[in-house]
Structure formats: C-alpha cells, structure tokens
Design a protein around this nucleic acid. Structure first.
Length: 746
DNA sequence: TGTACCCAGGTTTTT
DNA sequence: CCTGGGTACA
C-alpha cells in the first residue's frame, strides 16, 4: 500500500471514529478512574511522564488516554503511535482499546519497538539499503552466524565464545554504534571484538539478514539520515505513547526523540523501580532523562495500588527506599493490612520446597485454586527441586519460560526449508538443513562447498550447484538430491495456499518421517510440533499485502516466537523466575531462595548498580502478591553439585521486622559459640535428621568482621579453628578461643 | 552416521 | 549435579 492511499483510508477511518466517540457517553468511560489516573488521561497534549506504580492501573490509563486523545483531543488515529516491548502487551492494548472504543483497531500503529521498526523497514527497504525480502535473525540464528564469522576469521572459538561476541555486538548496536564508532580504548581484546562485529555486519549485509538490534538501529538510521522520510513521519505521528519506558535502551530512546521531533507529543509510562532489564540495555534513568530533555513535561504519579494489602505495600515501599536516585514513589491502598509476611528458614533447599508444598496444600484445602499461587525464584535452576517436590506430592504445576514454539529445533528446521525454498541464497538456512534429515552429506562435503563459496564469493547454494556439477562421487550425488528436493519444492509450491506449502515441504523433505520414526517422548513431541506448525500456518492471517504470505509468516515467526507452553490452562501452581513474573499478580506468592549470592545473585554483587537492580527485582517480586506473601530461604543449598551455606538475603533484613512473622521461630538469643559442642544438634534444628555437619552453616557474628557463616571446621577444643565466610570481609580461618564469635540468628 | 565420552560452564529474556 | 557442545571412534 502506498502512503497516499493509506492516508485516504485513514481519513475515512478517522471520520468513523469521531462519530463513534461522539456517540459515547464520554463521562462514562472516565468516571471509574481515580483522580490521578484522570489527571494523566486528560493531561493536555504536552510531554507527559506517568510514573505508574505496580498495580496502579497503568494499562487502563494508557488505553483511556488514547481514547481521550481520539475523542476530546480530536486527533486523528492516523497520527497516533503506541509502542510496547512485548507482543503480549501490544495485543493487550489493542484488545482493551477495541473494547473501549468499539471499532476495529487493527489499523492503528500499535506495536512493539521491533515490530514497528520492521514495518518501517519493509516499507522503506530501499532507503534502508536492504534487499526487499530481507530476513530476520532471531538470537539463535544470530549466535550461529556470529560463530560462523568467528571461525571464518580463523579465531579460536574457545577464546572468543560466540555468545559473548553476540552480547558485545548487541550492546554496541543498542547504543547506536557501528563498528567504526566503537572506541577500543587500546584494549586488544576489545579491538578483536570490534573486528568480529565488523565482519559480522558485512556478512549480514551480504546475506540480506538483520538481527533484532539491527532492526532498531536501521530504523533509527533510516529516519536520521533521510530528511524527507523523517519530516514525513514527524508530521504524521504527533502523538507517541510508550509503555514500560524504564525498559527502553539508548537506541530506543533516541529513536523516540528523533521521531517526536519538536512537534510530536510523547506520553511515556513507566516505573523506574521496576527496571529489571538493565543487563539488556534498559535504562531506569531514562525517566529522569526524559524530564531533562523535555523541560515542559509534566509528571503524574499513580501510587494508589489496587492489588496488594497494606502490609505487602509497606514492605515493598520500605525495601525500595534502599535505592538511591529514584524518581520517588510510595504505594498505598484502601485495602486493609491483611496477613503478615511469613518467613520460613529451611534447613536445606528440599526442606524449603517441602514448606512451599505444605502451604500450597493448606491453601488448596481452604478452597484456593492452584493457579492463584505462584512460586518465584531468581534463577531457572532453582525450579528443579520445587518441581520434584510438587511431583512427589501430586500437585499439578506449570513452569513458565523455556523454549518458545518458533524457537524449537524442529520448527526452525522447517522454517529453514521454507526460507530456502523462497530464497536460495539464504546460507544460514542452507547450512541448517542441508543434512537434516540425514541424507549422506557429511561435514567434509559441506566444508568443501563452503570453501568454494568463499573463494568465489558466491552463496552456498550456488557453490553446491557447481560442486554437484564437478563431483560425480557419492557426496555429489547426495548433494544433488538435496538441491533437486528444494528446487522441486519451490516449483510445486507456487500458487498453493500457505498451509499446503508447509505440509508439502514437511513430507517431501522427510522431516515428518524423520521425527515420526523417533518413538521417544522427545521425538513424539517434535512430530506433534510439526503438525502444530501446519495449524499455526492455517490460522495465520497476514496483515500486510506488501510481502508474499510466506515472507510475512517468516517475519511473524521471528518477531513473535509464540507461547512456550502449548498445554491448556489446567488448574496449576505457577512456577517462574522473578523476571517472568513482572506484570503478573497472584493472591499467594512464594518468594524462594532468598540467600546472599543467589538473590541478590553473586554476579550482581561487586558494583552498586547490579545490586540496585536486584533490589528492584525483589520489589517486583513482593508487589506480585495480592493477599499473602511468603519468603523463604535455605541455610544449606546444593548448587552446581556442591553444598553451599548461604546467609539470609540482605533483602530479608531490609524489610520492616514488624511486618514479618517467622513461621518456625529460631532462637534469637545470641550465645557464645564456645559454649556449644560440635556434634550436638542445635536446639532449633529442623525435624530432618540428616543434619550432621557439626556447626557448618552456622551464622556467626564477629566483633570486627561482622556477620558470616561457618564453612569449615578443624580440630577440637580450644585449639579448634573454623573457616568463616564473612559477608564483607570474605573467607577467614579463625581460632575459636581467640576470635570471640557469637552465634547469630537471621 | 551414530554414539560414547570429555569438558566447560551454570542469572535474568524479548524482540 | 546436569546440560550442551564438541570430538573421537566404531
């Protein structure tokens, strides 16, 4: 669709919307908003920052503001752009807009940063210096390509792991830097990374592929370097609304500023206290930067919380005050104070898990649905023990995360065939499926073809063709079979509907049979997934007429990886990481593994920034709970095969003590360690009889070194020594009779 | 071509 | 401890 005809379409749509909105009782849709929400919704068309606390009705405000702008504001839907981070959030916004406005919102520019960037690049592929049907690399594709590049540069790939280089490249792109703009500070390894970046970029350009970060960077450069286009879009998008603003990276921020120009009005909604994606470029300080860059901006704070009890909010507020440089915000509620926060100190991670199970059972017997309970943890590895305990007690559960549908190997294989059928020059896809299912094309053959391609500067496909022409041996024959397969498919597939194309490809390539033969559970699930792919294709409704259906589908697969779990919504206990829990809420929340080193994570200690983000993560976790919050940690935990003795997370100590009720109160009286003899079980030892570690794991207090934990024990009597891992001073051996250690509780 | 073993590495995740 | 990737061998 060209821009002019799109514009005409918009004018008629705008007309229709005005009629609709005028017909609505406008008082009606705003009367349920609280005062602050209304203030945000009805703010004049000037830069606006909505500081939206957890559970304060953020999406509601965003959606109502759009309605307000379209109605009272009298702006055209054509001039509106709404940006989110996830497809889920975009879909949600669409949905709620649809409910509120009662018209088809499918034509509105509501989407993710990446989706919108992609749309711009598809329209302006020429100006962006991309081939018309450029393909999108997902992270996995990108890592493979980086790895390929590293090998081609003859670098040792153990010294230069692809994942690290990938991280580096994305980091540079996220700050808007091309290889030439990266300062290597005279650091040789950084120089090497820049070289990898540079070679990777050249390969991408040559192959006509873009990774996620590249979508953003290209879209930014497209506008920056093209005055006409910039003027056009600045003229068009007068109202830009951004969700989860604290998660924007530098490039996204710059893109928004560029697009808004001097005329555009930005409404940004976010919460600096919930910025937990700093490690992937998100910047909590963009909220403050926004206020500096737009001095005429107003700020509305949404602090009334509709989710949690006063107790939970008090704990959250108190904890987050430990962070410096906040915008500042205190959540409050009309609801009562409710249950105290319950703390359980497990003897080990199994004990901790059993506690969780025990409580879940209690709540179930009280009549709560299992899906109303969530068990949160810092890292995925922690889920295993919990899962084992859940299985053992027969409680259905669901773990969030894991591989998404379009990320599964068998699906990616199928997509690679589709790409190859469409674009014979797609080297990555060629490499992926040339021998999948196995058809006698070994690594040696592929190497030869690759060599040929490099020497002559041609694609793998072309190189394979000339290889077939010269090699009459077994390898040549096998390769010929492959080439003919793809070519044959390409011929047969034209003019057929998309689902038939896919179905045909799956059979002819042998993928279906390959997985069907595998009777293992894994093979069965893969065969099912391929079946599901045909369904996905059948259900797919391409939105754009610009691209062929197949290209549209491929782009969709890359940009929207789909759900991880296909299973239906049984009544399951919800297990997920703290990150995955953001944006969700549950009546009952278990925050587990609250140990120093685990949460806050070891790798986040060191510098201050990392710790602040961990604290925000804890804040996010606490504010997920509506009614009851449980905190737990284990004194001893098996991690990476060895036992570790952790101390209570500092975050537990940072909560107001009066809000917390210890479920199994430990003895709080300090007593000299010498008074106790090894081998005597502690008076407050758990019911478990497995405890045999003398005083290992005992928390102690030292006059000089502060708090620590005993990690080793040596000798007997007054000469005996203990190794103590101090919170601040590190690990030390101390002679018990000299060091006046005191046993300490939490 | 498939599998048996060795080794490193093990925060968080969307697009 | 457990996983995934890579290499060595039958």
């Amino acid at each position: 669709m060209n821009l002019l005809s799109e514009y005409t379409l918009w004018r008629s749509l705008a007309q229709a919307i005005k009629v609709k909105i005028a017909a609505m009782n406008t008082v009606d849709i705003y009367q349920d908003l609280n005062e602050k929400q209304r203030e945000a919704v009805m703010a004049p068309p000037l830069p606006l920052l909505v500081l939206a606390g957890a559970g304060s009705g953020k999406t509601r405000v965003l959606v109502h503001r759009i309605a307000y702008l379209l109605g009272e504001g009298g702006i055209s839907p054509h001039s509106l752009l709404a940006v989110t981070f996830t497809n889920k959030a975009a879909a949600e916004m669409r949905n709620r807009l649809g409910q509120l406005l009662d018209f088809s919102v499918s034509a509105l520019w509501v989407g993710t940063f990446h989706g919108l960037a992609h749309r711009l690049l598809r329209i302006h592929w020429r100006e962006a210096n991309l081939p018309e049907s450029f393909q999108i690399l997902d992270s996995d594709d990108q890592r493979r390509l980086v790895k390929r590049v590293i090998r081609d540069l003859q670098l040792d790939d153990t010294r230069w792991p692809a994942a690290q280089s990938q991280y580096f490249i994305n980091g540079q792109k996220e700050t808007g830097k091309r290889p030439g703009q990266v300062n290597d500070d005279g650091d040789p390894s950084k120089r090497q990374l820049v070289q990898i970046y540079s070679a990777y970029e050249a390969t991408c350009q040559q192959r006509g592929v873009v990774d996620f970060a590249e979508l953003l960077l290209r879209a930014f450069e497209l506008l920056r370097d093209n005055a006409t286009l910039l003027a056009h879009y600045q003229e068009r998008f007068r109202h830009i609304l951004v969700d989860e603003f604290q998660d924007t990276n530098t490039l996204q921020y710059d893109w928004l500023r560029l697009l808004a120009g001097n005329q555009g009005v930005l409404t940004v909604v976010g919460d600096d206290d919930q910025s937990i994606y700093g490690w992937r470029g998100g910047r909590a300080d963009h909220l403050q930067r926004f206020l500096r860059d737009y001095p005429n901006a107003s700020v509305v704070r949404l602090e009334q919380n509709y989710r949690s009890t006063a107790t939970i909010l008090a704990a959250a507020n108190h904890l987050i005050r430990g962070n410096p440089d906040r915008m500042g915000k205190d959540l409050w509620t009309d609801l009562g104070s409710g249950d105290p926060i319950r703390l359980y100190v497990g003897y080990n991670e199994i004990d901790e898990a059993n506690f969780v199970i025990d409580r879940i059972k209690n709540h179930v017997s009280e009549g709560l649905a299992r899906q109303e309970m969530a068990v949160l943890y810092r890292s995925n590895a922690q889920s295993r023990v919990l899962e084992e305990a859940l299985i053992a007690s027969g409680i259905p559960y669901r773990v969030y995360g894991g591989l998404r549908f379009f990320e599964r190997a068998e699906i990616k294989d199928a997509l690679a065939y589709l790409r190859l059928i469409r674009h014979r020059e797609d080297d990555a896809s060629f490499e992926r499926v040339v021998n999948v299912p196995t058809r006698g094309i070994g690594a040696r053959t592929v190497d030869q073809v690759r060599q040929l391609a490099r020497e002559q500067g041609i694609s793998l496909w072309q190189a394979a063709a000339s290889f077939v022409a010269t090699d009459s041996g077994r390898a040549g024959k096998a390769m010929r079979v492959f080439l003919e397969l793809v070519q044959g498919l390409a011929r047969e597939v034209v003019e057929r509907p998309l689902d038939e194309q896919v179905s045909l490809m799956l059979t002819r390539s042998g993928l279906t049979e390959f997985y069907a033969k595998d009777s293992s559970e894994r093979g069965e699930s893969r065969a099912e997934n391929l079946e599901e792919l045909i369904n996905a294709v059948r259900a797919f409704r391409p939105e754009s007429e610009e691209l062929s259906p197949i290209d549209t589908f491929l782009a969709h697969a890359a940009l929207e990886a789909g759900e991880a779990q296909g299973t239906a919504w049984e009544d399951c206990v919800q297990l997920m990481t703290l990150h995955a829990a953001k944006g969700l809420e549950f009546p009952i929340v278990f925050l587990t593994g609250l140990e120093e080193g685990l949460f806050p994570h070891q790798r986040a200690l060191g510098g201050g920034e990392g710790l602040e983000e961990e604290r925000r993560l804890a804040y996010v976790g606490i504010t997920r709970a509506m009614r009851t919050l449980y905190l737990s940690y284990a004194e001893k935990r098996r991690l990476h095969g060895s036992e570790t003795y952790g101390m209570a997370s500092r975050f537990v100590g940072e909560l107001p003590g009066e809000l917390i009720e210890e479920i199994r109160p430990r003895i709080k009286v300090s007593r000299p360690l010498l008074a106790a003899r090894p081998n005597v079980s502690r008076p407050n030892a758990s019911t478990s009889t497995k405890f045999s570690g003398h005083w290992l794991g005992q928390r102690v207090q030292h006059a000089h070194f502060g708090a620590g934990v005993i990690t080793a024990f040596e000798g007997d009597g007054p000469q005996s020594r203990v190794q103590v891992n101090f919170e601040r001073a590190g690990s030390k051996w101390l002679v018990l009779s000299y060091a006046r250690l005191e046993a300490a509780s939490v």
